[in-house]
Write a protein that binds this DNA or RNA. Structure first.
Lengths: 207, 207
DNA sequence: TGATTATGAAACGGTCCCGTTGCGTATCGA
DNA sequence: TCGATACGCAACGGGACCGTTTCATAATCA
């Protein structure tokens, strides 16, 4: 295989270069199918190729197996918007939960979250990737919000940040998953945050 | 089709009766495969028949489709042990979370939970069945515990029970799913319950 | 005994997908 | 122009599973 030097000094093989467009449409098709509820194990290369308007060979030339492709597809997901600093920590937390709630309305996000939740057993690399891309950045943002509250005194100084994050996120996901569809859930973020802030015990000074 | 009356007056078809043993082993095989991480969509009738040591015909004679079979299989899952009344509400809640934690250690339970979480989109009947069998009874038990605490004054009188349940269960599942494997998690139930009881705000009377 | 139904095994034709190969065409550098 | 590589397309042999049918055998009752 002959190569040549580009201006940047990057080695480049001779012949027709790979199509960036094809690559993008393959990844887009993958995300589309996952977003329609197709699980990783049911996802077929042929369906991706067909959806992307691409030959199977073009896919096999780039990825040696399905998992690699899905990992790369997940990697193109945009990280969430940085959380704006609201007036109070309570406001920021409500905003955070509202983002989760809003995302879970879109098929695409919800199905990809399902994949992360359920296929983590059989696809640890996928789960790890999802962790880096979706879980960790949110953890960092909310963690900062909570720390700010601990400094200003709006929150307990000895608050366990990971535990607080788990309570908030876990409750949001739980309720989204298991509450009856008929229930109005517009105020879910506020209710979760307020309940978590107050705690379950009575407050002697306020009762 | 000729029928005959049994002593109990139940109409019964002539000929060889269906094997109870075959039926049980089919359901057991189904649960085994699901417990090994096979998703509902990948679950094949042939693999069930093979595992159960049974002909495919025997399965098709009883269930017209895969989903019906899985629904019946889920129905054989034992409801959870009623929660013993400990000394305090805190103890009972810790016990409850410990049961969840313990269950999620067993492959079988964990995988079935995964199915409930992820396949609920495409199999609403399965999700509903799981709700009845696994979610609702727990909700009832914890709900009773929380109400007791509200009466005795150990908990706030205006506590939102559904919200409290979501915070506790959601946090447990979230942490089980996303915390690093290396973390010691033996005291997770205690930490979750205590954090939820205290709430995030500082307590003026105790600080 | 004979009628009736169930059972496990095997085979059927059909569908979907696998991963690979060959083909004619398109796009690059030399 | 030529060599090299990528492209979309179609076809390949092979495997898994579908849902059905056939068959010899087993269990039940009249």
């Amino acid at each position: 295989m002959k190569t040549q030097q580009t201006a940047e000094g990057v080695a480049r093989p001779a012949g027709r270069p790979r199509s960036e467009k094809a690559e993008r449409s393959i990844i887009e098709a993958t995300l589309e199918l996952l977003g329609e509820g197709i699980g990783v194990s049911e996802l077929s290369i042929e369906s991706i190729a067909s959806r992307a308007g691409v030959g199977k060979t073009t896919i096999y030339r780039r990825w040696s197996n399905k998992e690699d492709l899905v990992v790369d597809a997940l990697a193109t997901l945009k990280p969430p918007i940085p959380l704006p600093q609201g007036a109070t920590v309570r406001d920021d937390l409500v905003t955070y939960l509202r983002v989760i709630q809003e995302e879970s309305r879109h098929h695409r996000t919800r199905c990809i979250m399902n994949i992360a939740m359920s296929d983590s057993e059989r696809h640890p690399r996928l789960a790890e990737r999802f962790r880096e891309l979706a879980v960790e950045p949110r953890r960092a943002v909310v963690s900062a919000v909570l720390r700010r509250g601990m400094e200003t005194g709006e929150l307990r100084a000895d608050l366990d940040i990971d535990m607080a994050l788990a309570l908030l996120s876990g409750a949001m996901i739980w309720l989204t998953k298991w509450s009856h569809a008929g229930d109005s859930q517009a105020d879910l973020p506020e209710r979760i945050v307020d309940e978590a802030l107050k705690g379950f015990r009575p407050r002697p000074s306020e009762s």
